[in-house]
Design a protein around this nucleic acid. Structure first.
Lengths: 347, 347
DNA sequence: CTGAAAGCGCTTACAG
DNA sequence: CTGAAAGCGCTTACAG
C-alpha cells in the first residue's frame, strides 16, 4: 500500500471551507472560533488523521514542547549497566513529562562529553534534566557554563549552597542519620562506610556524615580507617569490601553508600566467611528493585522516585516559564530488611 | 547574566562575510565549499556557540533525525514498576541511536492509548520502536493500521509468520528447549510452567513449546495441569505458584516465562516449605540484573540486549531509507545458577 | 565555489 | 469571528 502524503493544515482548510489560519486556531484551541466552524474543522482533521507538524509549529513559536534527560555516569567499561536507581527515575520522569504534555528526549552521556547547551541551542529541547553520579568538582564548571548561557536545567543530586543552578535531591544527611540510629539500636558500634566521602561526591558524603552524627549522639565514633572509597557499582562494592577486610580492622556493620555497593560488599563478606547479618550488619541506600531480592534482603534507605520525577519536571517547566524556583529535598526513609539483622522484615 | 539571543545562520554569515546559504553548506558538510571559507565559517560558528535549529532544518528536509521508543505494558496498578528487562533494552536502544546520530524520544503508553502514527504524522519522529508485553491478538489491528498508514516501525517481540510489520526477537523456542534439556539432565520429570501459553502471548508460548519439545525428545510429557497463566511480574509469579501448589499435583521443577515470575514463584514455594533447588528446580527467562542476586541465584535464559537494541535501530533506519528489511531472531543462551540445582554456578 | 530566492508548515498580530 | 500576510530559520535547486 502506497504511503499517503501527509495532510497539512491547508488541506484541512480546503476541505472544511475555511482559511488555513482558522484551522490553526481550532487546533491550538483558540477561543476565537465559532463553535460550528470548530466542529467542522475538527471532523475533517480527524478524518484525514491530521497532526500538527511539530517542526513548523515549534519554529514559529520558538518552543519545542520537549524536555531532554541527560543521564551521565563516569565512563564505565560496561555500557549496558546503568544504575537501576536512575532507571526508575527515568520511568517517573517519563511519566511526569507525559502528564505535563511534554515529550522526553533521552540521552546517555559521558561526563567528558561536550553536551552543554547543545540541546537547547539547537531547539531540540526547552530544558534539561541532569541525572547521574559524577565528580562534583570536575563537573562544576560545566554547570556554571550552563547557567551563564541561560540554559534551563534542573539536576538530581546534592542540594547544597553554592551549587550552580537548581537541584532536587534526597535528604541524604537525614538518610544517613536513620542508618546510624538503626545500627546503633542493633548494638553495632564499629561501623564501616563504603563509598566516596568527600566534597567530590557530596551525596555519599552527606550519607556518611549523617550516619556519623547519629552515632556521635550516642558517643560512638566512626573510625576513618573503616571508610573505603567506591563508586556506585556492584564491582566497586565487592572491591571496597575486600580492601576493608584486608585492612584487618574489626567492624560489625557496613553502611554502603548505595545498594549496588552493598550487594557487592555482601558478596565479598560472605566469601570471606563472614555471615550477614549475624557477624556484620549491612545497609544500603536507594532501595532499588533488587534490594529486596538480595540475599539476605537488603536494609536500605528509600527515596520516592515518583515524587522526585514530578518535582524535577515541575521545577524545570517553571524555570522555562521564568517563574522563580528553588532547590528542594525529598525525605528519606529507612526500609528494614534482613541484612541489618533486625528481627522483622517486610519480605 | 541576561540570556543572549540565540545566534542564527544569518548572524554567522554576516560575521564570516559570506551568504547564509554558504553557512548552511558548511554546516551540512557540503563538499561544494572552499576550504578557507569553510574554516572561517566554522570558527565563527564555534565562537558564537551556534547550533543548527532543529525545527527549521527538519521542516525543510522533512526528516526529524529522531526515533521514538514506545514502551507499553498492560495497565498495571503501580506505574513505577517497569519490567527491568525493558529497561535494559531502553539502555541499549538509547546507545544505538546515539551511535547512529539520532535522538530518542521515549514514551510509556498503555496498550489502550491511541498513539498509532501520532509520532510520525506530527513529524516528531521518523519511526517507532515498539517494546512491551501485551496481548498479541488485541494488538494486531493496531499494528495493521500502522502498516496501512505507511508508518515506519519495528517491534521487539515474537518473530512469527503473519505478524504485521517487522519484528526483532529472541529465539524463544530454542531458549525453551535449552531449559527443557537442562531440567531433564538434572533429573526433573514433572515440569510446571508459569506464564501464559497461548497465541495471545506468543513469546511465552514459544518458550513453553520449546521446553515441551525438548522433554518430549526424552519421552517426558509436560502435564497441562501444571501450567498456570501469569503476566510478567513478581506478584503474578507469586500468585501463579500459589495456584499451582493449590492444585495439589506433584512437580519437581518450575519453568517461569520470565525472571520476575520466577522470583515471585520462588518466594511462594519457599513460604510453602519447599526448598529451591533441593525440592524444586526453578528457571526463569531474560537474565535481568537482579536474577543473579535472587535467593538462590536464578538460572535463566540470556538474550543479548545490546545486540537487540542495535538490530532494532538498524532495521528501523533501513526501513526509513526504504531499504528492504526482514524480521530477525537473536540467539538464546542458558545461564546456569543455583536455583535449578546445578552443582556449579557463575556467582 | 558562491549567492539570490523559493519554500518547508505552521502561528499570530493586523485589519475587517 | 475570520482571512490575508508576514515570518520563524533553515536547505537546496538554479544560475552564474
Amino acid at each position: 500500500m502506497p504511503k499517503k502524503t501527509k495532510a497539512t493544515s491547508v488541506d484541512i482548510a480546503y476541505r472544511a471551507g475555511v482559511s488555513q489560519a482558522t484551522v490553526s486556531r481550532v487546533l491550538r484551541g483558540s477561543p476565537l472560533v465559532n463553535i460550528e466552524t470548530r466542529k467542522r474543522v475538527e471532523a475533517v482533521a480527524r478524518e484525514l488523521n491530521y497532526k500538527v507538524d511539530r517542526h513548523a509549529s515549534s519554529l514559529r513559536t520558538q518552543r519545542s514542547g520537549t524536555l531532554a534527560l541527560l543521564l551521565f555516569e563516569d565512563p564505565t567499561p560496561d555500557d549496558s549497566h546503568i544504575n537501576p536507581f536512575f532507571l526508575s527515575m527515568l520511568g517517573s520522569i517519563t511519566r511526569a513529562c507525559a502528564k505535563h504534555g511534554h515529550d522526553l528526549l533521552v540521552s546517555f552521556q559521558q561526563l567528558s562529553d561536550d553536551w552543554h547547551a547543545d540541546y537547547e541551542n539547537s531547539m531540540k529541547a526547552d530544558g534539561l534534566i541532569l541525572l547521574g553520579y559524577g565528580d562534583y568538582l570536575a563537573y562544576q564548571s560545566t554547570l556554571e557554563q550552563l547557567v551563564d548561557q541561560g540554559t534551563h536545567f534542573v539536576r538530581w543530586g546534592a542540594v547544597l549552597p553554592g551549587q550552580p543552578g537548581v537541584s532536587i535531591g534526597c535528604d541524604n544527611f537525614h538518610g544517613g542519620q536513620l542508618v546510624g540510629e538503626h545500627l546503633y539500636a542493633l548494638g553495632r558500634r564499629q561501623v564501616a562506610f563504603l563509598g566516596d566521602a568527600s566534597n567530590r561526591y557530596p551525596e555519599f558524603f552527606a550519607r556518611y556524615r549523617g550516619c556519623g552524627v547519629a552515632l556521635h549522639d550516642w558517643h560512638v565514633t566512626m573510625d576513618p580507617s573503616l571508610q573505603v572509597d567506591a563508586e556506585s557499582s556492584e564491582e566497586a562494592g565487592y572491591a571496597a569490601a575486600q580492601t576493608l577486610l584486608a585492612r584487618g580492622k574489626p567492624f560489625d556493620a557496613v553502611f554502603a553508600a548505595s545498594d549496588l555497593i552493598a550487594i557487592g560488599a555482601m558478596r565479598a563478606l560472605t566469601e570471606s566467611g563472614l555471615r550477614v547479618p549475624e557477624d556484620v550488619s549491612v545497609v544500603g541506600f536507594d532501595d532499588i528493585p533488587m534490594a529486596r531480592f538480595a540475599n539476605p534482603a537488603l536494609t536500605t534507605v528509600y527515596q520516592n522516585t515518583t515524587r522526585a520525577g514530578e518535582l524535577l519536571v515541575e521545577a524545570l517547566l517553571k524555570q522555562i516559564r521564568d517563574e522563580p524556583i528553588e532547590s528542594q529535598m525529598i525525605p528519606a526513609s529507612l526500609i528494614v530488611r534482613k541484612s541489618s539483622g533486625a528481627v522483622f522484615s517486610d519480605m
